[in-house]
């Protein structure tokens, strides 16, 4: 099968690949780059588990062809913050008990980041709307919303 050149930036580093046209972005990240924090749960953009940022916008990486990310900048959960320098959202998720099984967590974090990047002071309803594309089956969303609100209001415990 024909391969096509793909240049992109992932979590701040430049990469070059030769990819087939039908490779999805989620497969590139997970299978070729071993960035396994990005999860897949439906493959059809219905659950948000595979959410990453593409040029600053949240996208379902199962509905983007890898080749479509040519020239783009991708941020995954691995690029959000490291163990030594957690992103405030990661801290808040831990502090507020927003993590249960953890499978939706990376996608939730990326959607939350997109929300706060574009609306640093969202209301609780705006947070709900910002997470509407991310399903969670464990938490009932309450503590995830609490965590995001805490970051927005600068109420993180140090």
């Amino acid at each position: 099968m024909a391969k096509y050149p793909l240049d992109l930036v992932v979590n701040g580093s430049k990469y070059h690949f030769e990819v087939e046209a039908d490779l999805r972005l989620v497969d590139l990240l997970r299978e070729q780059m071993k960035l396994l924090g990005t999860k897949e749960s439906c493959g059809k953009g219905e659950c948000g588990a595979c959410t990453v940022l593409m040029d600053g916008k949240s996208v379902a990486s199962c509905l983007v062809l890898a080749i479509q990310a040519n020239g783009s900048e991708i941020v995954t959960v691995e690029g959000l913050g490291g163990e030594e320098a957690l992103h405030p959202l990661q801290q808040a998720f831990i502090q507020h008990g927003a993590v249960q099984c953890g499978f939706c967590t990376p996608g939730m974090l990326m959607s939350a980041k997109y929300l706060l990047d574009n609306n640093p002071r969202p209301t609780r309803e705006e947070i709900r709307a910002g997470l509407a594309g991310n399903l969670c089956r464990c938490t009932g969303y309450v503590k995830i919303i609490d965590a995001i609100q805490a970051v927005a209001e600068g109420r993180l415990e140090q």
Partner: peptide, 21 residues
């Protein structure tokens, strides 16, 4: 006590390997 979940740190970092990983 409201102890933080022992696996929360790894999970917010996207580190744990689930079966599919």
């Amino acid at each position: 006590k409201r102890i933080q979940k022992v696996d929360a740190l790894d999970k917010v970092l996207g580190k744990p390997l689930y079966s599919v990983d």
